[in-house]
Design a protein around this nucleic acid. Structure first.
Length: 291
DNA sequence: AAAACTGTCAACCGCCAATTT
DNA sequence: CAAATTGGCGGTTGACAGTTT
């Protein structure tokens, strides 16, 4: 059975919100809270879909929304979290107070992704031109090919890192409920703390392309980010005791019933391969993420 | 000056998972 | 337990502004 539409299309206003509508929504929520989004428009006197009201509130009207350009630190965080989580915008937004998933998604798609791809493109071409034998992929369109290769390597690495993280999580006392929940636990664990320490050490001296265009940037530069990534595992685990590390290691019970015969360490090792794939992304890629 | 192009971002759409009936 | 409902998420679209030709 198909799902009923969230609201009738007829008689429901769409498109940009007027200041009057914003006022109505703001006033209602301040007074009563949002309650059920479905019934809110009716009670608030709005000719809008509840879903639309929710989105407007979350992305625009909420009082804790942070306005203005992304700070270098926020930018850095987005790049790193996206490397770990992929397009989990809601999870990423949880680590950026005042920023919405939509805002982060837009920022990634319009700024960071382009920089990443253009830099990756340039670096691959550079590497190709310096090698007698091109990489074992045939295509008349090197740039497209390289982007695809890079992207597939990244996706694979993500998938394996995700699997690894799931194993780590499954071994702790708390079970995974959803991606963001799992990630928050990981982030708030010793591993996450260590990761943040790594960030603290080498991050932060970068400039937002939006707010400080003329300033130099090293935010997310090639060696910077790859070194960070390399350090995520080694440094993070190095900072915890063997007992703590054991607590992240899957128990025998956890492994029983798994569909294959891999041990947790096999998986971690295999993720190393994928990570290397990601990390071995062209040497001298100093300009990745730079404008 | 104006048409074409490009970039940005708010808003919508469709799907999924959790919750309720 | 199944169906219906709701909230939430990620992908995509389209309007608008700014820039280039």
């Amino acid at each position: 059975m198909g799902r009923a539409p969230c609201c009738d299309k007829d008689g429901v206003k769409r498109g940009a919100w007027s200041p009057e509508e914003d006022q109505l929504l703001l006033h209602y929520i301040n007074k009563h809270g949002h309650g059920s989004w479905r019934t809110l428009p009716k009670h608030a006197g709005l000719l809008r879909c509840g879903k639309s009201c929710r989105l407007r509130w979350i992305n625009y009207l909420r009082p804790d929304i942070k306005r203005g350009p992304f700070s270098p630190e926020e930018e850095d965080t987005i790049i790193q979290l996206h490397g770990m989580l992929g397009n989990k915008w809601a999870a990423i937004a949880l680590k950026l107070p005042g920023r919405t998933d939509n805002e982060i998604k837009n920022f990634w798609n319009t700024h960071l992704k382009k920089r990443l791809l253009s830099s990756a493109h340039g670096s691959w071409l550079h590497k190709l031109s310096s090698k007698a034998e091109p990489i074992n992929v045939k295509s008349e369109y090197p740039s497209t090919r390289h982007m695809v290769q890079w992207e597939s390597a990244r996706v694979e690495a993500e998938a394996r890192l995700s699997m690894e993280s799931s194993l780590l999580n499954s071994s702790s006392s708390v079970r995974k409920t959803d991606d963001s929940d799992y990630f928050l636990r990981l982030w708030n664990s010793e591993i996450g703390e260590s990761f943040q320490k790594i960030r603290g050490k080498d991050g932060g001296v970068c400039q937002s392309p939006v707010s400080q265009k003329s300033s130099p940037t090293k935010c997310g530069s090639g060696p910077d980010i790859t070194e960070r990534a390399k350090n995520i595992r080694s440094s993070a685990f190095a900072n915890i005791t063997p007992e703590q590390e054991d607590s992240y290691r899957p128990s025998v019970d956890d492994m029983v019933g798994s569909s294959d015969s891999l041990t947790s360490y096999d998986l971690i090792d295999s993720s190393d391969t994928a990570l290397e794939l990601l990390l071995d992304f062209p040497d001298g890629d100093d300009d990745v993420f730079q404008q």
